[in-house]
Design a protein around this nucleic acid. Structure first.
Length: 486
RNA sequence: GCCGGGAUGGCAGAGUGGUUAUGCGGCGGCCUGCAGAGCCGUUUCACGGGGGUUCGAAUCCCUCUCCCGGCUCCA
């Protein structure tokens, strides 16, 4: 087994301090991470995918570094507004059916780009009681107050309000271009936000000490994250649009209730832009993940999304996804050629000095990841690795099976960080079941080539191509790899 | 208006004081039965404008211009 480099420390950008900090978990090697999940009233789009992808990489990387990670990501299945009510009519289904449909789609989509399942995916609707308890506590501590239409959080009581977003309450009131109409709600401060909203019975509702209704949006994340990770935990993530008001309000509620620091590191992704504008549901400017996966393939898409640093806006560009396929192919090839050498049980004694090169590139990879998850740079070292392997084979011939195995052992963990579950599914595929038949066909093809019967030789090559198998001819013979799983 | 992030070669995209990022594309060559892939070379100061600090700046400081995001349900 290859042991990860522990000497280097992960440095990450914390929105709270607006600075890159050395990552130091609250409890030695245990890490609690809460990733703000999807509101399941529509299919996941590319912007969501990018965000969940980088947290997937983060969790995998933390585990790679030896941390014991508890990964929690919620499913917001309470999202009711006029638009949703309209959709229910359009699709002629109940609220429950709509939520179920998109929750299932959400998990399918996550799986399609190789995302880990979180340790817990709590549903908001199953934690109403926890939310009510939290609201009760806030009322007891005088941070919450009850009005005609619900329960609100008084932001003027929480001195540190605004510490995450930099938006202070007075500015909120005066600023925001008067978009918030103070008299619309029965609130003490314009910036006060709902903990519980009273509703009519014609919308989905739950019982509470303050009458029937539904919880405010922010309370679910406070209640569920603290339930599964404790009152203080390490990492809380989301898209940049969550910074204000969502995460600001979460901090206020949680810290007001417990008197403790809620979260140590706040991490946020920047948006994916489409035609210069934010990809979002409300503007109808979006590309669904499932459509992009269908069009470009999950490996290419996953690599493409990680080829821009997560704190940089990503301008969605289809040409870029197509380009990513070249890197993907090269990696596939390098890995599968090594697998092939193992299957062939090559004992050439070739390849020992390649291991050092690979090991150095592995360290480069780790250094890049430690630097605030610099995936574009980490991917560059994967590109280098693939190139080194292929060049080496070209120059020195088949690599000894014991060295091939050693190299794969070094590479498996780091490539999996980038490609997630897709690595074993689409890159390091089990070649053994194809091995005998393909080798036999290659033997035949090479015989035909020697005879100069290229026409028949090409028929075999085309047949293999139809099976999703590509051939590469070297001086020492032909190698093959599975480019498409059929 | 307030808060935040940017501007790098034809394109995408790293790099924070001195050495080739990388990938794609273009051009020339090599390899190959062919194709693909690969390899080598090349694509003249790549670092938004101006000023400053320094022996030396894409990298630090000042200033200007432009772009983007958040401030409203949002990843």
């Amino acid at each position: 087994m290859v042991t990860p480099v522990h000497s280097s420390k992960l440095r990450i950008y914390n929105t709270l301090s607006k600075d890159i900090e050395e990552f130091q978990p609250i409890n030695k090697d245990k890490v609690g991470i809460y990733a703000c999940g999807l509101t399941v009233n529509d299919y996941m789009h590319i912007g969501h995918a990018r965000t969940y992808l980088i947290w997937d990489v983060l969790v995998r990387y933390l585990r790679f570094k030896g941390y014991k990670v508890t990964y929690v990501s919620n499913v917001t299945d309470i999202s009711i507004d006029d638009k949703i009510l309209k959709r229910l009519k359009e699709e002629n289904i109940s609220f429950q059916q709509l939520i179920e449909k998109y929750t299932m789609a959400y998990f399918e989509d996550r799986e399609s780009i190789g995302l880990l399942r979180a340790d817990v995916h709590p549903l908001a609707t199953q934690h109403i009681q926890e939310m009510i308890e939290l609201i009760k506590k806030l009322i007891e501590k005088d941070y919450g107050y009850v009005t005609e239409d619900g329960v609100y959080f008084n932001i003027s009581k929480f001195k540190e309000y605004g510490k995450l977003s930099g938006i202070r309450s007075q500015e909120l009131i005066a600023g925001a271009g008067g978009r918030i109409k103070a008299d619309e709600y029965d609130k003490e401060n314009v910036g006060d936000f709902a903990l519980w909203k009273k509703t009519n019975t014609d919308e989905p509702y739950w019982y509470s000490p303050w009458g029937i209704g539904r919880p405010g949006w922010h309370i679910e994340c406070s209640a569920m994250s603290m339930k599964y990770l404790g009152e203080s935990f390490d990492i809380h993530t989301g898209g940049e649009d969550n910074i204000f008001p969502h995460h600001e309000n979460e901090i206020a509620q949680s810290e007001a209730a417990t008197g403790k620091r809620f979260v140590k590191y706040w991490l946020h992704t920047r948006h994916v832009l489409l035609g210069g504008e934010k990809m979002s549901k409300s503007y109808k400017k979006l590309i669904y993940l499932r459509d992009a996966v269908k069009k470009f393939g999950s490996l290419n898409l996953r690599l493409y999304l990680l080829q821009t640093h997560y704190r940089k806006q990503l301008l969605y560009d289809e040409k870029g996804i197509e380009e990513a396929s070249l890197t993907v192919n090269r990696i596939k090839k390098a890995i599968q050629f090594l697998q092939l050498f193992i299957l062939k049980n090559i004992s050439s004694n070739v390849g020992e000095n390649l291991i050092d090169t690979i090991e150095n590139k592995r360290i480069e990879f780790i250094e890049a990841m430690d630097d605030d998850l610099n995936t574009p740079l980490a991917i560059k070292s994967l590109q280098d690795i693939a190139k080194e392997i292929l060049q080496y084979i070209e120059s020195y011939g088949p690599i000894d099976s014991k060295f091939s195995l050693k190299i794969l052992e070094i590479l498996d963990p780091i490539i999996t960080i980038i490609f997630g579950n897709l690595y074993s599914r689409e890159i390091r595929i089990d070649m053994s079941k194809y091995f005998w038949i393909v080798e036999k066909m290659l033997e035949e093809r090479n015989l035909l080539r020697k005879e100069g019967n290229f026409e028949k030789a090409d028929i075999i090559r085309n047949k293999l191509k139809e099976m999703g198998i590509e051939i590469e001819d070297f001086k020492f013979g032909s190698l093959w790899y599975i480019s498409k799983i059929t």
